[in-house]
Design a protein around this nucleic acid. Structure first.
Lengths: 333, 333
DNA sequence: TTGAAAGCGGTACCAT
DNA sequence: ATGGTACCGCTTTCAA
């Protein structure tokens, strides 16, 4: 157990009385080494406390085992769920995510892409915020697979894994129309930044319009979604004379709505109905389980990882993977 | 705009009629280059679509600008909050997190440490699950700063940033004793894996014992914490004749408790009181705001990043940083 | 099964 | 301000 940091292949080799390359073979678990040699080398590795330097080994044309992951936010459980699925699958194949958070900011997103590309990642997984022209070019030129996650409504640079956010909005609107609602409101967070929430709202609205309806009231506020914001905006909308049903930008917001209704003693869904998107545990454990659309967040992560891994293995990949969503009837509408 | 991948310094240099080192200087924004040369080189960089290879540039003794971040889970918003603070601060200084999720598994944690160390990170930030002997040795020998986050109750290998989890449990217990409660239950998730939740429980219990009380009932279930689990266990405890107050392993669990109480029409806090830990937005937006202890999760992330950055800059660092917690009186107890 | 040698691409150091 | 040179530590290629 000697010093740290500076142990190199050469030192181990000397101790084990073999060449550097032989040590390298042992470290990498290569086949062509005799058991006796392996044993001797392993002892030397142990004694010296050798730590492989993958920067040195990777910097040629060889691959880096790092996957750049760029997400717009970690402020609710959605992206962490995706990230977890991703990490789980990548780790199992010996890859590691290098993370960047764009904060829904186009400039920062561009900078992150450029910056992470310099580490020669073996792949890129990105939940785009708002791709700049330059960002798009960088991704197009990237010498590695690129998976755009969360939505499959728009054309990806390389591959896309997710769901149709428009259809998710449309589907629950159809369901609610089927249940006979005729008066609708919308409550959302900052949709100028959250394109996917905007797509759901657009889908929802288009279904309403097909049926001859419109949102009677729309309330949006800047900033990220949160239970608190949902509650505030709901209170505001209720004070103006509420619609029969409110569609929220996501479950967090809708939970705020349910809290406000509960606090006011309003009957949900009889007086005020609520619907949203995500299918979070939180919403399903609530006193009135949310009527919502379940997104398979973990699966988006694992499927994205699979696309990267397949491509790296030279296997066929498809341009789009639709992981699908699921209507959750709940009891709030 | 030529090909991608294979553009090297040499190609750019040739195009710009300068040496490789000059191009390198421009790429790195070094000072000693004349404006005209810079312009010429930048044009060539643009034309070739050069992407800097940081693996090559870093692999000597030079630093890697990557920070290994190992977390036990992403299943509730706690670690994402920490990660966000961390990424924010690191990014501002040009560093990137390489992420590993240990899943509260000692073996996986050890493997992740070993594996991420091979990338020669400039620092390590780890919320330990259950450090194995080997993992501890690896961290001790690591040739870079190591910050253990979340708790400061135990002695760190290098530095620690967090709060005293024991005190967090103890403090709210004192508060509740002060409010006159005399009958206590505990509901938790898998504490054999979540050492910090166990520490809070221990702190809470020790305060009870000082006052001559004990938990009258304790209910724990395997698996991660969730609102659903909190609700289930609460229902179970209520069916056995509930204590006057239930202390939960965290806010998610306590929200499940509140939901169960609301669903049963039980008065909170008059019939059943609830208390927990974290101070999540969710709990504060609830109909009955949770009585809890606010943890400064984002600050733990930024403070951890600061410790690393300071150390790398050669500045003094302290062994412990206590970011502090805050009692949130709420209305559930 | 083992080893020698030649880079991988960039940057620090030292000249000019 | 600019360039030549050596070298970072490992792995690929080829030879023995």
């Amino acid at each position: 157990m000697s010093a740290s940091s500076k142990v190199r292949l050469a030192e181990v080799a000397q101790l084990a009385q073999v060449s550097e390359i032989t040590v390298s073979r042992v470290v990498r678990g290569a086949a062509n080494v005799s058991p006796e040699t392996v044993q001797r080398v392993e002892k030397a590795l142990e004694q010296t406390g050798y730590v492989r330097n993958r920067l040195a080994g990777s910097f040629g044309g060889r691959t880096s085992n790092q996957i750049a992951v760029i997400l717009p936010s970690l402020s609710n459980i959605v992206f962490p769920d995706v990230l977890y699925g991703l990490e789980e699958r990548l780790d199992a194949s010996g890859y590691h995510p290098i993370l960047g958070i764009s904060n829904y900011d186009a400039e920062r997103e561009t900078r992150l892409i450029a910056s992470l590309l310099e580490w020669q990642p073996a792949g890129i997984v990105i939940a785009t915020a708002n791709l700049s022209q330059r960002a798009r070019i960088l991704l197009t030129r990237a010498p590695c697979p690129v998976v755009e996650i969360m939505e499959i409504d728009t054309d990806p640079v390389d591959m896309a894994v997710g769901i149709s956010q428009v259809q998710a909005g449309k589907s629950i609107a159809y369901y609610l129309l089927g249940r006979g609602y005729t008066s609708f409101g919308y409550i959302g967070h900052d949709l100028t930044r959250d394109r996917r929430a905007a797509a759901r709202r657009a889908g929802f609205r288009s279904a309403l319009q097909e049926a001859g309806f419109e949102f009677d009231q729309v309330l949006e506020a800047g900033g990220t979604s949160s239970v608190t914001l949902g509650r505030q905006l709901t209170a505001e909308m209720l004070s103006m004379g509420a619609p029969r049903l409110i569609y929220y930008s996501n479950d967090d917001m809708a939970m705020g709505g349910q809290f406000e209704a509960l606090a006011r003693g309003m009957a949900v869904p009889d007086t005020l109905a609520l619907a949203s998107f995500n299918g979070l545990d939180l919403g399903q454990a609530a006193p009135i389980p949310l009527t919502t659309v379940g997104s398979r967040r973990g699966e988006i992560g694992t499927a994205a990882a699979d696309q990267i891994l397949k491509r790296l293995a030279g296997e066929d990949t498809s341009r789009f993977i639709d992981v699908g969503f699921k209507l959750i009837p709940g009891a709030s509408a």
